[in-house]
Write a protein that binds this DNA or RNA. Structure first.
Length: 291
DNA sequence: AAGCGAACCTGGCTGC
DNA sequence: TGCAGCCAGGTTCGCT
């Protein structure tokens, strides 16, 4: 589910309900997700007010009034839903409220002093939450993390410098969160399609011998921006289980150029889209448009 | 030392 | 209907 646009969509959905509110009760239904919860996690949260709900890379960052930050990662299947005091409701980000047998995957419940409760459900438990004191940049999760793709730090010059001399394929180079923070398997495929670059090309094609950006690098940076901005505008992408409250499948999936379209015609040239496996993950590309 | 495959965990879909 | 096999948005670890 969650690459940068999905996490940003969740953030925008949750922020109006969480910012300015304080935790009145925190319930952990198990001792760990991907990692154990930190010591006294629930006790430390209760009474704290959320000053802002931000995003860094694929993390939701709740800035607390005691200076600490609650960092939350959705993993593969993590999702937040909210309920208002008077009954079930859904956040503007349009996520399905889980009921029935999925309830066994409700792992964290936050009750807030504005009457809102927030539920974290994560079937595969690749998600996690932690509390960070002090400088974020020095926390193991965030030191060495790459640039925000939607900030002005992502420039052709930056990307060329990072790519220079690298033999690794563009696919894995772009998935590396130490280079760019927030891209995932879907948007890497989409960005490479837009840039006309085959995922198997070595990352070094982005740089000249003097480590300056090539034309391909310029195209790629532009493509990354367009793909992410479009996805955020559309309310996050949507794979099967990213459906909206009204049961409608998500909005952005129609506009995928290559992701999940094996054998279907390229929207630009009609040639069949191909799927290959790189580093154990699927890559999709048009064999004619991407060289 | 970069780069790859495996591992973490569960559910959904396909095909026999 | 049952069951085996394969696939999935992410990240980290350990072996070349």
């Amino acid at each position: 589910m969650p690459e940068l646009p999905e996490v940003e969509t969740v953030r925008r959905g949750l922020a109006p309900f969480m910012e300015g509110a304080a935790f009145t009760r925190v319930e952990l239904r198990r001792a760990n997700l991907r990692f154990p919860f930190p010591e006294r996690f629930a006790e430390r949260l209760v009474g704290r007010r959320i000053e802002a709900l931000d995003r860094r890379a694929k993390y939701l960052m709740a800035r607390l009034d005691d200076g600490a930050t609650l960092a939350m990662h959705l993993g593969m299947t993590g999702r937040f839903t909210i309920e208002l005091a008077g009954g079930a409701a859904n956040i503007p980000g349009d996520f399905v409220y889980q009921t029935g047998r999925n309830a066994i995957h409700d792992h964290v419940l936050f009750a807030l002093d504005n009457g809102v409760s927030v539920r974290f459900n994560d079937a595969r438990r690749f998600g996690y939450m932690t509390l960070i004191d002090g400088m974020l940049e020095r926390h193991p999760l965030f030191e060495g993390i790459g640039v925000e793709p939607l900030s002005n730090e992502l420039t052709p010059e930056y990307l060329a410098k990072r790519a220079a001399g690298k033999i690794a394929p563009l696919k894995s180079f772009l998935l590396d969160q130490r280079v760019i923070a927030g891209l995932g398997n879907i948007y890497v495929s989409e960005a490479l399609f837009r840039a006309g670059l085959r995922p198997t090309r070595p990352a070094a094609v982005l740089a000249t011998k003097s480590r300056a950006p090539t034309a391909a690098c310029e195209r790629l940076v532009a493509a990354i921006l367009v793909v992410l901005e479009e996805a955020i505008l559309a309310g996050g992408s949507s794979l099967r289980d990213f459906a909206g409250v009204n049961g409608a499948p998500g909005y952005f999936q129609h506009t995928f150029g290559v992701y999940g379209r094996t054998g279907e015609p390229c929207l630009q040239c009609g040639v069949a889209i191909e799927r290959i496996v790189q580093s154990g993950r699927s890559s999709f590309f048009c064999p004619r448009c991407q060289r």
